[in-house]
Structures are given as C-alpha cells and as structure tokens.
Design a protein around this nucleic acid. Sequence first.
DNA 1: GTTACCAAAATTGGCGCCAATTTAGGATAC
DNA 2: GTATCCTAAATTGGCGCCAATTTTGGTAAC
Lengths: 221, 221
Amino acid sequence: MNDVDLKSDEAAIEGETSRDVTDQILQDILGGLLPPGTWLKQIDLERRYGCTRPDVRRALDRLAQKRLVEHVPNRGYHVYEQDGRRAVEVSDIRVILETAIAGQIVANASPESILKLRVLAKRFDEMVLLGTMLELYEANLAFHRELLTLGGNKELVDLVAEIRQRTSSAPVSQWRTRARVDQSGREHHLMIDAIEKGDVEELKRLTEFHIRQSWGSSSSN
Amino acid sequence: MNDVDLKSDEAAIEGETSRDVTDQILQDILGGLLPPGTWLKQIDLERRYGCTRPDVRRALDRLAQKRLVEHVPNRGYHVYEQDGRRAVEVSDIRVILETAIAGQIVANASPESILKLRVLAKRFDEMVLLGTMLELYEANLAFHRELLTLGGNKELVDLVAEIRQRTSSAPVSQWRTRARVDQSGREHHLMIDAIEKGDVEELKRLTEFHIRQSWGSSSSN
DNA sequence: GTTACCAAAATTGGCGCCAATTTAGGATAC
DNA sequence: GTATCCTAAATTGGCGCCAATTTTGGTAAC
C-alpha cells in the first residue's frame, strides 16, 4: 500500500472552501485519484484540500461510516480494497429495486418527463465525447436519478444513490472500454423507448442487463 | 419542541466509557426516551453519557448522516419528526427487498437454520412477556436478520438493518397494542412454517403483510 | 398594556495543542 | 553479515478553550 502523493498544487484551490471536504475526497476516490489501499494521512489531506484538522477527521469518519474507507485504530484510514463479492451483491440489490418499480415508472411517465430523460441521456452521450470521466459519471447518475424519481418513492431514489457509491471506488474501472460506454448510452435510449411504448417487461429486462453489464468483466465471479 | 430533561443520575454510568456514544443515543431515541422534536443540547449529552464534547459531536454528526436527527446550523440538532410518507416509502422498500429474496431463503434453508429461526422466534415471544420494550425490539431485529441472512446477500442484510432504523424512531409507537405484538410473534412462526413447506408465495404474502402491518394505524395515509 | 429594542446569558462550532502510539532507521551485539 | 533492540521522527487522536451566533429576559417607549 502506497500513501497518497500530493506534491502538486497546494494553494490552487483557495476560493471554494465552502464546499464540503467529504465530497471532495469522495470524488477523488471515485475519480481514481485515490486508488484502493491508499493510506489517507490527515496532514496531507489537510494541506491538499486547504482545510483544518477537524474537517479532515469529520470527513474521514463519514467516509468510514459509508464504508468507503476503513479505519484502523492508531494507524489511520485507508481506501477500501475492492471486494468482488460485495460488488456483485450491490448489483443484485440494485436489480431488485430498480426492476421492482419499473411498473410505476411506466405508469407515471408523462410526455414531459420522457423529454427530460431524453435530454439527460443526450447529455451523457455528449460527455462521452467531450467530458471528463467524472462528468460522464455524474451525467450517468443524473439520468438514473431522474429515471428512478418517476417511480414515486423518494427514499428509494436516495437509497440507490447511496449504495451506488458503496462499491464503485473507481468509475474508471467500471467502463473499461469505450465500446462499453457507447453501449451504455444506447441502452439509456432503449430504456426510454420501452417507457414510451409502455412495455414494462422490456424495461425490466433492459434495466437488469444495464446494471449487470457494468461489472461483467471485473473480478473473478 | 421541549428539550431533553436529564436531572437524573449523572455518574451512574462510569465504567463502560468504551461503548460508543452514538449507539447509546441511538438506543435512547429508539427507546422513546428522546422523543421526536427533542433538541439535543451538547452540554446535556456530554454530562448524560459521561463523555467529552468531541465525542458528542461525532455522534450527532453520524446520526445526522443516518437522518435520525436533523442539523440546523447554529441552532443545534434535534430528533427528526416522524414523517408519514417516509415511513410508508421505507416499508415499500423493505417489502420489495424482503419478498425478492424469498426464493433464495427457501432454497437455502437447512434444518439447522430453521431450528435457529424457531429459537429466535421463541425468544421474541418470551420477550413479549418478560422483556423490556428495547429487548423486544432487539429480539425482533435478530429474528429478521437471521431470516434475511438465509438469502445469501450480506449487503442486503446490512442495508435492511440500516433502513429499519431510518424511520422507526420509537419502537414503542410501532407496536401500539399488545394484540399487535402477539400477532407479530405468531406471524414469525407462520413464516417459518412456509419455509419448511417450501411455499415461496406464501412466504412472500406473509412477509408483505408482516411489514405493512406495523405501520397500519399510524399517520393519515 | 403592548411592542420593539437592547443587553446578557447560553449554546454552538471552529481551531490548535499535546500526549500516546506506531513506524522507521540506525547502532550494536552475536 | 545479519538479526535484534533501542531511539527518534512522524502520525494519530483526545481534549479544551474562545469567538460567533442565537436566544431569552428585561426595560423603555409608544
């Protein structure tokens, strides 16, 4: 396990101290800047994000609660090693939840909401070409959030958003190939098509495939 | 909103400083000692649980993350008011998840695991007669945890345990009547019966009924 | 008598220091 | 030459103080 290297720009942040440190660290883990196994030294983080010691500690504690980092008493915090079994289990949960509300999604889909989905799906496609990996990741999240919102269960939307970031330490590793990302974009549109047609079963099929696909090639399962 | 009254024994704890403060506050919320709306003053908690200021703050932050208390900047933390809609939504999620794995539960149920369930169901029945409200609550959790564990998805078990304590601020309010608690105990045994018979559909029916029942009379939905 | 304003008490929350533990490196003994 | 022990540097984490904000109670004016 190597520890985080941040000889780079220290005072370049300076200006958005307001945004929460937890999210910044979270994004850096998600972005692959802080690979699994990395030891998160408090002094480094303090300097890196231009914040105080208590801020760092609060952030680390929150991330530990979310099980994104592990806390070893008197030795510090380190980014969780990716566990293949856990990843599969989380996918299973997502499949259960997201297919379960397919019926409500179709039922509640108005022409406006379908348009909204199209816009978000298109933005994802644009980010494939023009955006960074993180922007792509967030465009994907936005699309799926909007989709789930149609289900009408607000708690479920938040819950899925939460468990998503439970295993996907590096979105980079999810969409390994360009072909896979393009495919994802196409699937988004297919899902919207299914909603327009009112074909619930088709939506379920697509949803399950879409979720499972991301993890297909990773780990030995 | 009244604030927490704790003129009672202050130094009576002294000896189990080790156990986490977060759990203690959580239990007191669950136990109904800290009703919804109560303002959680840091000084009071500090004295009450015999711990330091940073300990209290860490605990409050964690509970806020779990959405059991709400944080109002510069005004403090208070126990979440029970939201009827949220409670229903969480029940819906539980129904989705727990019925979804009914098949696996039946498939994985060995004679030993069924015996284990019987023991836990019996302990619940005993607690109805002899135990405190909190013990009853925990016996119930233990039964359901064991049941879900048979599904084989460890993440799902933890997730359900998590969302359970998301709304049920006061277990007292859940099982309002004695009749309802007795009924719950009987349902546990019926569920085990269904597993023994290998009747998946029956288990699903019972599970949904069992979950929905707890919230039936509360709030105007 | 009521309302508005001001002042004092209380509470939150930011911040930094110091002790305890761990880790790494060097020196010595075998 | 290698292994073990001891010392020093570094890192974690406990703890408490003080500034900023809010609330409450009292007073004065209308």
